Simulated scan of single mutants.
Amino acid sequence: DPLMLLRVWEGGMSFHGGLLGVMFAIWWFGRKVDRTFWQIADFVAPLVPVGLGAGRIGNFINGELWGKPTDLPWGMVFRTAPDALARHPSQLYQFALEGVLFFIILWWFSSKPRPRMAVSGLFLMCYGIFRFLVEFVRQPDPQLGYLAFDWLTMGQVLSFPMILAGAGLIVFAYRRNAE
Rank of each mutant, 00 (worst) to 15 (best):
G128M: 11
S111Q: 12
K112P: 14
R116L: 15
M125G: 09
R131D: 04
G121W: 11
G99F: 06
I104D: 03
S111R: 15
I129H: 11
S120W: 15
P115M: 11
A118R: 07
S110Y: 09
F103G: 13
Y93F: 15
Q91K: 08
A118W: 11
I104M: 12
G121R: 05
Y93Q: 10
Q94K: 04
F103C: 11
Y93P: 14
I105M: 01
F132C: 02
L97N: 01
Q91A: 08
Y93D: 05
W108K: 08
A118Q: 04
E98P: 03
F109Y: 15
L106V: 08
F132A: 02
L101G: 09
G128V: 00
C126L: 15
W108S: 06
L124H: 05
S120V: 09
R114S: 01
F109R: 00
R116A: 07
V100N: 07
L101W: 07
L133G: 13
R116N: 06
W108F: 14
G99Q: 03
Q94H: 07
F103E: 12
G128P: 10
Y93C: 10
L106Y: 09
L122V: 13
F109L: 01
L92W: 05
I104C: 14
M125W: 13
P113K: 12
F95C: 08
S111K: 13
L106H: 07
L133E: 03
L101P: 11
I105F: 12
I129P: 08
V100R: 07
E98H: 00
P115H: 12
M125N: 03
W107L: 03
L122F: 04
K112V: 12
R131F: 05
F132V: 01
F132I: 04
R114D: 05
Q94L: 08
L101E: 09
C126W: 15
F109G: 01
M117K: 14
F102R: 06
R131Q: 05
Q94N: 14
M117G: 02
S110G: 12
A118Y: 11
L122K: 01
C126H: 10
W108D: 04
V119F: 02
S111V: 08
L122D: 05
Q94C: 06
M125S: 10
I104G: 12
M125P: 03
F123M: 13
W108G: 04
L101R: 12
Q94S: 12
I104H: 07
L97Q: 02
V100T: 08
F103L: 15
L124A: 02
P115I: 11
